[in-house]
Simulated assay, not measured.
Amino acid sequence: MAKPVKGPDETKKAVGETITFVDQDYERRKLFLPNWVVLEVVRGVVHIRSDNQLALDYMRNRPDFKEQEPSP
């Protein structure tokens, strides 16, 4: 059986990995996305699964959040 070919985005992040965003303004708050998903900022950070593209797009377009570089 042939192995499926992975695209360039799939090799960067494994499914289930989390991406961390640092809140530049608040230590604790809730963010409500257009699809009624709630993201919770705790201790100034919010974690999003790498397969949640809607949440990632939302967070990357907000100037009050900074995406944290993954640690090696």
Rank of each mutant, 00 (worst) to 15 (best):
M1P: 06
M1H: 12
K3R: 13
K3Y: 09
P4V: 10
G7E: 13
G7L: 08
P8D: 00
P8L: 03
D9H: 11
D9T: 06
E10S: 09
K13S: 02
A14P: 15
A14R: 14
V15I: 06
V15Q: 01
G16Q: 00
G16P: 01
T18A: 13
I19S: 01
I19E: 04
T20N: 02
Q24I: 00
D25S: 02
D25P: 00
D25E: 02
Y26Q: 06
Y26A: 03
E27N: 14
R28M: 11
R28L: 13
R29G: 04
R29L: 01
K30C: 08
L31G: 03
F32Y: 05
L33T: 03
L33F: 02
P34Q: 10
P34E: 10
P34R: 06
N35G: 10
W36E: 13
W36K: 13
V37G: 07
V41H: 05
R43N: 15
G44I: 05
V46G: 05
V46L: 13
H47M: 11
H47R: 15
I48D: 07
I48Y: 02
S50N: 14
D51P: 00
L54R: 12
A55V: 13
L56I: 14
D57E: 15
M59V: 03
M59G: 04
N61W: 02
R62V: 05
R62G: 04
P63W: 09
P63I: 07
D64F: 00
D64A: 00
F65V: 02
K66A: 02
E67A: 08
Q68V: 08
P70Y: 07
P70C: 08
S71G: 11
S71Q: 14
S71K: 14
P72G: 12
P72W: 06
P72V: 07
